[in-house]
Design a protein around this nucleic acid. Sequence first.
RNA 1: GCGGGUAUGGUGAAAUUGGCAGACACGCAGGAUUUAGGUUCCUGUGCUUCGGCGUGUGGGUUCAAGUCCCACUACCCGUACCA
Length: 801
Amino acid sequence: MKYDFKGIEAKWQQRWDDEKSFKTLDDYSMPKYYALVEFPYPSGAGLHVGHPRSYTALDIVARKRRMQGYNVLYPMGWDAFGLPTENFAIKNHIHPEIVTERNVARFKSQLKMIGLSFDWDREVNTTDPGYFKWTQWIFQQLFKKGLAYKSTMPVNWCTSCKCVLANEEVVNGVCERCGSEVVRKEKSQWMLAITKYAQRLIDDLELVDYVDRVKTQQKNWIGRSTGAEVEFATTEGDTLKIYTTRPDTLFGATYMVMSPEHPYIEQWKDKLANYNAVVEYREAAARKSDFERTEMAKDKTGVQLDGVRAINPVTGNEIPIFVSDYVLMGYGTGAIMAVPGHDTRDWEFAKKFGCPIIEVVKGGNVEEEAFTDCETGVMVNSGFLDGKTVEEAKVAIVEWLKETGKGEPKVNFKLRDWVFSRQRYWGEPIPLVYCEKCGWVPIPEEELPLRLPEVESYEPTDNGESPLAKCEDWIQTTCPHCGAPARRETDTMPQWAGSSWYFLRYMDPHNDKALASKEALEYWGMVDWYNGGMEHTTLHLLYSRFWHKFLYDIGVVPNPEPYAMRTSHGMILGGNGEKMSKSRGNVVNPDDIINTYGADTMRLYEMFIGDFEKAAPWKQDSIKGCSRFLERICAMRDNVAPGTEYSQKNEVEIHKTIKKVSQDIENLKFNTAIAALMSLLNTFADNGVNEAEYLTFLALLDPFAPHLAEELAESLGVTGTMVRYPWPQYDEAKTVEANVNMAVQVNGKLRGVVSLPLGCDDETAKAAALEEEKVKAAVAGMNIVKIIVVKNKIINIVVKP
RNA sequence: GCGGGUAUGGUGAAAUUGGCAGACACGCAGGAUUUAGGUUCCUGUGCUUCGGCGUGUGGGUUCAAGUCCCACUACCCGUACCA
C-alpha cells in the first residue's frame, strides 16, 4: 500500500470531527484523567514548530489513557488578552476583538491539521465575556477578603511612549518596542497580597509531583530566609530597625546603611546638618534608570548622615549611618547593619568610605575580602559568643536579643506582592468603583461581566492613564452601596489574570452560575499532568497556585493545589542551534512540514528529535527518517499474513516493545519509545508479520501517528475508531529470551561473549567463560586471582602474571 | 555574583542498581533495481600506525566508571546589590 498521507489525514480528521471522537464524557463514575498543556497566546504570526512539542506529547498521553479506559479531559483554549494584539490594533485601526478572532481562527485551523485529540466543545477564550466574568468575580472575592489593595508603587515609565511598561517589556533598561530610556515613576496600583501565601506556596510543594528543577525555581523565587530583626538606638533617642540573616556577626557591625527612600530621612530633617546633600543623593538615585542602576552595581555610592548616629546594641559603640542605593526599601526594613568583614557588599562599601573592618568569624582574611562562609568559622572579638560556631552563635544571640528586648527572630521572603493593574485597553476591566463616601466598592455580581467600553483610540494617554480614562460616559456611574455618583476604575488586569484559573473553566466551560459546578470541580480536580515551558515555572505557576489556594480557602475548589504533576519541555531551536525568531530568519512553520510530509510525520519527528526536557535544534534532514518509517509500515501492510496469535519468532520482541513503549510514555521518553517501535518494525521485516502482531504494533503506534494507525487498522477490519481500542498488555515472563549473552572480561577488558541459559548458576558461567577461545588466549600463562559473575550480565576474570 | 542545567561519533542522540559505550535515526561509502535523476532494497560506517585508544579536562575509588567522589574548563537558561 502506498502512503497517501494527505488523503488519510483529511479522512480521519473529518471522521473524528463528525463522530466527536474526543468528546469528554459526562460519566463521573469512570476513572478520570486530566491532561493539560499551556494554552497559547494567539499571536498574528501563527503557530511555529515549538508549539506542537508540548501538545503532541500530552496528546500521546491522552490517547493512551483513552485506550486504557479513562475518561480523558484534554482541552485547549486561548490566552488572548495582551499587548501585541493591542499594538497591532493601534497600528492598523482595527478593534482588538477582531484581531483576536482572526488569530484564533488561524491557530485553530493549524492545530486541527496536526490531529490533536482536543475536545473542542470545551474551548475557552480569556477575552470572552462569559469567561472573564469569572476572572472579575475571583478578583472581587480577593478584594472582599482584603487581598486586593491599592498602593503607590514605582513603575517602569517609557519616556518616549509615555506609558507604563510591565517588567517583561523592559529589556536591558530600555523600552522593548522603541528602545528609549525607561525610568521609575510612582503610581497608584492595584496589588494582590501573594506574600500572605508565601510560606504555604513553599510548604505545599511537598504535596505535588513536579520535576526538581521546577520546585527549586519556585522556592528560589519565593526566597525564604531566616534571621532576626534588631533595633539599634540612635543618638536622637529613637530606634532604627534592621533585618539580618547573620545576627551572629552583630559585634562586627561598624556602620549602618539606610535606603534613600527610608522615611527616617524626612523624620530627621531638622537634625541632619547635610539634609540637602542627602536629598540630592535621593533624587539622583530616583533619576537613575534601571539600566544605570545595574551598570553602577559594582561601584558603591552613598552619603553619610551628619547629625545622627546609631549605637551598636551589643558593644555600645557609636557607629555612623549612611544612605546608599544598594539598600532597597522594598526588602526587610529598608535599613541594614553593615558587617564589612563578612558581607561582600558591605566590604566594598567600607573599603570605599574608609569604615573599620572587624573580624568576628575566624577563617579568612578580612583585609583581602569578606569572609562569608557560615560552615567552618569560629566566633572571635564577639564577647560572650567567642569560641562558638556560627550556628551556635546565631542561637545564642537571638536568645540574647529576645531577653534584652532589642530584637526577635524573623523570617523574610524575596517574593513581593503582585502588581495587578495595567494602564491598557485590551484586558479585563477591574470591576470596582470609587465613591467619595464609601471608598472602593465592588460592582454587584449581577452586573458582571463588566465589559470594555467602545473607544476611538486604544493608545495610552500622555499622563500614563489607561485608555479607558478617556471614556467619561463609561466611567461615570453610581455607588452600589450608597447611590451617590461614583467613578469606575480605569485600569485593567494583567495577562496573568485569565491564565491563573483557566484549567478550572475547562471542567465546566458553559456554566453561567459558577466558574464551574461543584461536581465538575470535585470529579476533575486536580489536573493529573500539566506540561509547559520552563519560562512559566516561576510567574504563571506561582500565580495560579496562589489563586487556587485562595479559591480553596473560600471553599470554591476541593484541593489546596491545582496540579498533581508538572513537567517541562525543552525549546525547539532553529537549525543553527539558536532560538527560533523572525529576526534570525530560522522560523519553521508547521504548515510547510505537514504539506510536505504529513501531520503524522511531523508529530513523530517532534517526539523523536531528542530528550523531551532538553532544547533541540530542528534538523530538516532528520525528518526523512520518520517519514520513511511510516512509509515502511504502510508497505508492510501488503505482506501481513493471517494469524490470531503472536508467532514464536516475534513474541519476545513484541512483549518487550509493549513494555518499553508503555513505560517510556509515562517517563517523557518519547524518543526512545519511537526507537523501540522502529526496532520492532525491523524485526517484523526480518521475521515476517501476522495480523495479530501488526495490530498490536498499530495500537502502540496510534498515540504517535494516529491517522495512519486508524487507516491501517480499518484495512484489517477494525470497526469504529482506534480511540478506545484496548491498549496492548504485556506478560513480564515473555519479555526475556531463554538464553542471554554474557560478556566475558579479563581484567575489565572485553574478550568474548558466551550464550547461557537465563539465570544459570555462577559456576556454570565461570566454566563456560574459561572455555571461550579468546578468553583462553588472554588468560594463558596468568594466575587467576578471582572471577566475578554478575547474573545474566557479565563475567570478569581477574588475572595476575 | 548567585541559582539551575549541559558536555558522548561527521549530525540528532541512546545507555535500570556502576556491568558488552554509541541503541534508533540522519549523513556518508559501496552494491542492486532504474533510460536517468529521485525513490526503494542490501552491505558497511567511533578513531586506529591493528598493539590498542576512546564519553569536555586533571586526579581518585572499584574486579569494573559516561554513570560514584574531588578539583577544573566551556557553553546554555534563570536572576540581579534581597542584607
